[in-house]
Design a protein around this nucleic acid. Structure first.
Lengths: 211, 211, 211, 211
DNA sequence: GATGAATGAGCATTCATTCAT
DNA sequence: TATGAATGAATGCTCATTCAT
């Protein structure tokens, strides 16, 4: 029952990621995944319960890796604000380095969230929790406003990153996601509003110095 | 097109929204939509090219409505910041009032953006453009930082709203989205960081006044 | 939902009977049945729930016909013994006239009795019941021994007829089943034992008159 | 073949009998048989050509045993009629002692007779032949009517026994087959008809002595 | 001999779409 | 316009069998 090799499982996961990214989950054929992985159709079923399980496994294992990487990396940052900046940067650069995985996660996660309603996406929730914890830490240290709800913020941030990564994927990755990451952090940390005290009213016909 | 026909088309759109929300696009059967709309299976093909076209039409028409509503409503607001606040609020309350439509847009939009890569989702882009224009207006008026890229911001904001609405849909709508809208605006407008000048270091054992 | 024609259903039943007789239930392909019936594969599923249902329907409808025929025919017979003789004859001649149906019933009934354990084969039981009732009638009229259990006898008779019909089917129907029917009735009615009183002991070397 | 191998073959046969009885031939998996026999899947193919061969072997070997047993046992009986009675009794008690084997023979034999049309079921034919020989012997001795065709009778008897045993198996073996055996012999030996000379007409209102 | 991971042919069933009425 | 019976292409999954170890 225990399949012979770890390699084969990995090859199937990689092939499935590739194929799902190419055609989308529903339009992907198990036989194409098998061909891509250079195994027989039936072999896939030695490692995965069914096609759905394959998709779920891609998520779980990717999320697990991302989670571990991020947890390790942000630990070394000096304060919660720096951690947040680092987290955003890591998220985007991981997507940038694994565009096919990005595509699957971006495009299929929503779809799957439907058929995985019962399935508790533990890994994904853990990922969001990392964000929430950084916020809470920042609040305890007086660096982040107490009014900010960690539960709302974690989803806002993820949603923003997710949408930007999707756009990047769909645009055929023609620009740098890392640059985008900077802007995201700036906006979330400072907001977009010019503070009223420093505001300079722009009057028509009058040249104004730019901030 | 006779008025009678307009009704039928509308009934089909509504039935499809209901059914797509219930089962997701791929698991929805045309025959079930027909039954729900109280028309024959074949009748659907008199109004829509195929199943995909049905999904696209739901988007287009909903987006159109949302777009028109938002454009009209924000026009009356005094300044770009108020417009932004109003836009966020409208987005969320529309979702709140049309949960089934919300579900289709939230859950199926991503999926569809994949299989409809060629199809340019004009209405959706127009919606994003409204956001960008408000930002540009704010920047011209000196109310919004010049460094903020409207192109990036519009997707960040949409992504954040989208994710929060999805969460709300999946949570079976147990809380108020309108309340969430407030928090979103606050964070985007003010950021989450406590300004260094006003920062109060929290020292153990020393009671500190809260901001 | 209600399919257009009675004819189509009948054609499918006949095609299935043919194909099941040719290859056996498990080796028959739905697509071959469809081809034989000159309908599309999917059409079969408008009339039958699935492949099993097709087999069950063949049984039910055949049994129903046989049952009705037999009930009508034996009614006209003067006494229970004549009814029994007629019943056996009818059973065999029906098989003889519908060899393919015979093959399905003979060969697949047993197999199916396995997967139809839950399914109560009402028609078959009704058929057996007809036999039992004739026996009971004969016992009331003093024509049949009281010790004979109708419940046992009905299965004995059916088993005997069934086995003989099977053999006839498998032998490529090279002899007359009607003739066999006569022998069956004789044996069941008179037994095989020569009554002791009329017994003539056969002595070696002594010619004995044959009965 | 080493003694060790004989054991393994036997274990496989027994496991297969068990599994076939449980699920029927077509729904039984070779892997389940292997598990039941505590051998590897591949091992089965060292002893049997394929799954069909496994079924055939069960028949052949069981029939062989039954045949030898019956031949030995009936030899000691004084006359053909006693031999017949004994044969029926032995058949039923063997089934009663090996219900799983009974199930396979009863339920799967028919099915198999189909897909094994080429395969001549020599052992089964030999079994039937034993019956025929007893009849012929009885006819030579003047104990059995000359008109009875041994070829027809052997199948009638087998069919009756088979059907009764099947019914017993399907009824979850809730009654004694040995008792049934008695009735079968009585009916076949004496018939069911009350001899006209001894017939007592049952008149309403008149008490009649029961035979 | 024994193993069990790997193979891949095989097939029932679904459902979007058509078209005769 | 409207119908809905008929179509038939499309595919996930099973499991008997093989063969390298």
């Amino acid at each position: 029952m225990a399949p012979r090799s770890k390699d084969k499982r990995k090859k199937i996961i990689q092939a499935a990621t590739k194929v799902f990214a190419r055609h989308g989950f529903y339009h992907s054929k198990v036989s194409e995944i098998a061909k891509e992985a250079e195994v027989a159709d039936g072999t896939i079923y030695l490692y995965f319960k069914n096609k759905d399980d394959l998709l779920i496994s891609i998520f779980e294992e990717s999320m697990d890796q991302i989670l571990n990487l991020i947890r390790g990396e942000i630990e070394t940052e000096p304060d919660p604000l720096a951690k947040l900046r680092r987290l955003v940067h890591l998220h985007m650069s991981m997507m940038e380095r694994n565009p096919r995985l990005a595509e699957v996660i971006q495009v299929e996660l929503r779809q799957s969230s439907k058929f995985m309603k019962e399935y508790q996406n533990v890994k994904f929730l853990a990922y969001l929790q990392v964000i929430a914890e950084v916020i809470e830490e920042g609040q305890r240290e007086g660096l982040i406003h107490k009014e900010v709800s960690p539960a709302v913020f974690k989803r806002m941030l993820f949603g923003a990153l997710d949408e930007l990564a999707l756009q990047w994927v769909l645009s055929k990755r023609r620009y740098s996601l890392a640059d985008v990451a900077e802007q995201v952090t700036d906006i979330f940390l400072h907001g977009i509003e010019v503070a009223p005290s420093t505001r300079i009213v722009s009057l028509p016909g009058v040249a104004v110095p730019q901030a």
